[in-house]
Amino acid sequence: MGKHKLKNSKHRKYHDSIHAKHAPKKPFAAQQPPPKPTPRPQKSTKQPQHSRPEIPFEPHDRILLIGEGDFSFATSLLTHHGCADLTATCFDSAEELGRKYPQAAGHIAALEAAGMSMLYGVDATKLDKRKEIKRERWDRVVFNFPHVGGKTRDVNRQVRYNQELLVAFFRAALPLLVPDGTIIVTLFEGEPYTLWNIRDLARHVGLRVGRSFRFSADAYPGYKHARTLGNIEGDGGWKGEERPARTYVFEKAEEGGQTREPDGKKRRRDEDSDEDSDG
């Protein structure tokens, strides 16, 4: 009985080996191409269409505003940005201001009610002549849309007059700053304003552009651009706050092309490079 099982077992092994030898071979599976790598997402080079506008002020800053016109900008800083240490100045006397900008009365009332200071008859080129200004040190000295007015129709002379205004203003404002203070100037873009070469003017006085960015009037609710000559009837609804403009933030320049950080440390920068933002 045992021998029969053994014989059958050997027979089955032999039969299986012969069957495997002559069995039809399975075709090889077609080689599949390697999977294509997943493409990496491309970074968009487009700027965000609705980026947040830059505001170069903090609520705790001591701010001196020059050439305020109808005081709408000062009122917006107080009301919408919480800036409660403001001194707003204008070139005109109080009487002349009322004649040129009747709308100023409401802004003045709001500033007075909040305890803000207003000064009349302040020349941007002679800030040291006013003891209320000279005795203080300021975090921000601001001159929005400086312009000498319509002295001449000759473009070259007009450019020169405005360059002289800016240089004299820079020289008058620089000694008034705290160590890490800044001077902020906003100009319309395009000619003739680009002909003023504001960066070079500031460099000659001992300042450099720390950064610049697009000015957004919408960031200052209630602000309306006031012309140097005052309101003009029949001007076709001209709104200066809708024109493209740029804000320049000037820092004190140190010797050797260095600027000083708020913590007192020095850093070296290329004097012709600044952080430009279109936000």
Results as ranks from 00 to 15, higher is better:
residue 68 E to G: 11
residue 112 E to A: 11
residue 1 M to R: 09
residue 224 K to T: 14
residue 31 Q to E: 12
residue 273 S to Y: 12
residue 174 L to C: 01
residue 193 Y to K: 04
residue 98 G to H: 10
residue 190 G to P: 02
residue 139 D to F: 01
residue 79 T to W: 00
residue 197 N to Q: 15
residue 120 Y to Q: 06
residue 120 Y to I: 05
residue 23 A to H: 11
residue 171 R to G: 10
residue 217 A to Y: 06
residue 165 L to C: 08
residue 186 T to Q: 05
residue 246 R to F: 07
residue 149 G to P: 05
residue 205 V to P: 08
residue 2 G to S: 13
residue 52 R to W: 08
residue 15 H to E: 14
residue 135 R to F: 01
residue 44 S to H: 01
residue 38 T to L: 12
residue 238 W to F: 15
residue 147 H to Y: 09
residue 85 D to N: 15
residue 181 G to E: 00
residue 205 V to Y: 08
residue 57 F to E: 05
residue 172 A to Y: 03
residue 110 A to I: 06
residue 204 H to G: 15
residue 35 P to Y: 04
residue 251 E to Y: 00
residue 228 T to R: 14
residue 264 G to P: 04
residue 272 D to F: 14
residue 124 A to D: 02
residue 216 S to Y: 10
residue 61 D to I: 03
residue 168 A to H: 12
residue 198 I to S: 00
residue 122 V to D: 02
residue 63 I to F: 03
residue 110 A to S: 12
residue 176 L to W: 04
residue 114 A to G: 06
residue 92 D to A: 11
residue 143 F to G: 02
residue 178 V to C: 10
residue 210 G to F: 00
residue 218 D to V: 08
residue 182 T to N: 06
residue 110 A to E: 10
residue 6 L to M: 13
residue 47 Q to Y: 13
residue 189 E to V: 09
residue 225 H to W: 09
residue 143 F to C: 03
residue 31 Q to P: 03
residue 189 E to W: 01
residue 229 L to V: 12
residue 67 G to D: 03
residue 11 H to M: 14
residue 195 L to T: 07
residue 164 E to F: 09
residue 43 K to M: 10
